[in-house]
């Protein structure tokens, strides 16, 4: 059994062992948590899916969409889910696979259900409102990027020459942070980030590791840092960086291995210094 927040090394080992043991031509059971819409009750439905070589959760959901019949032979509605690139770069298809949050496109069936009749559970993320079945509304995640002004304030699209030069090292650090695809894995795993359906509460609720890391990204940029003080003000307010409980789950579930805890620590230090400066400036 793969526990929820084990290290990526032990996870990889468990999955590799499953992959080696995978039986060709098997059928597995998808146990899917379903919900018809906001305010509607949830229920579990099982589906039997034949597994071809190289199958992933998405190809099995596509099979269910074309064959919406439960394991005990009852016709049902096709399962609804969110997906896009299927290459783990758009972030859309994030859900709980076997109890752990990840992109379902890169979840290979061999890693989870190597034997005939093995069960894979699929659930929607719990920190965002469910739209239907496995599809959730992650608007709050994008909203929080506005709180930290996650952009470079350029003077328009006119031809004004190149941007600031930077060292390969700094580029490497920024590129890593900029690979964040707003998938929400870190928020699902974070004990400080909770479901909040009321948009007027978003600005005072915990902003989340992804947005803190984006504040660091833009504060590092030669032009982006012109808004550094405003970003730090946002991170010092209600729902800011001080509400991080240091559980460090975020960095364990990040599919792009973004150093989120480093970003949180860096922004924590920066807000402290910023606070002193503000105090002495009056």
């Amino acid at each position: 059994m793969i526990s929820t927040f084990t290290t990526s090394e032990s996870l990889a080992a468990a999955r590799a062992a499953n992959r080696r043991a995978a039986v060709a031509g098997r059928t597995v059971i998808f146990r899917i948590k379903r919900c018809d819409g906001p305010g509607k009750p949830s229920r579990w439905e099982d589906f039997k899916v034949p597994v071809p070589v190289g199958a992933n959760v998405i190809s099995c959901l596509q099979y269910i969409a074309a064959n919406p019949v439960t394991a005990d032979g009852k016709p049902t509605t096709p399962v609804v889910w969110d997906s896009g690139c299927l290459e783990e770069v758009c972030g859309a298809c994030t859900m709980l696979v076997g109890g752990r949050v990840r992109q379902s496109c890169s979840a290979l069936i061999d890693d989870y259900a190597p034997a005939e009749g093995d069960v894979i559970t699929l659930e929607p993320m719990s920190k965002f409102p469910v739209i239907r079945d496995l599809w959730v509304d992650r608007e709050r995640l994008f909203h929080n990027l506005k709180r930290v002004k996650a952009w470079v304030p350029i003077d328009g699209t006119y031809h004004l020459g190149a941007g600031p030069t930077e060292s390969p090292d700094q580029q490497g650090t920024r590129y890593k942070l900029s690979e964040c695809m707003s998938c929400g894995c870190c928020l699902e795993a974070c004990p400080q980030f909770n479901l909040e359906e009321k948009p007027d509460m978003w600005d005072t609720s915990f902003i989340g590791p992804h947005a803190i890391s984006q504040a660091r990204l833009f504060n590092m940029h030669g032009t982006g840092k012109v808004l550094a003080d405003e970003r730090l003000d946002a991170l010092m307010g209600m729902g800011g960086v001080s509400e991080c409980g240091n559980a460090q789950n975020c960095v364990k579930v990040c599919p792009k291995h973004i150093p989120l805890t480093e970003s949180i620590a860096a922004m924590g230090r920066a807000t402290t210094i910023h606070g002193f400066k503000r105090f002495f400036r009056g």
């Binding site: 031809h159 941007g163 930077e166 390969p168 833009f218």
Partner: peptide, 22 residues
């Protein structure tokens, strides 16, 4: 070339040479 300059100003982390050029 203007489009690259603009994207550079927007903060795209283009790979860099040792001298810091794109």
């Amino acid at each position: 070339p203007r489009i690259i300059d603009l994207l550079d100003r927007m903060g795209v982390p283009f790979n860099r040479t040792l001298e810091g050029m794109r």
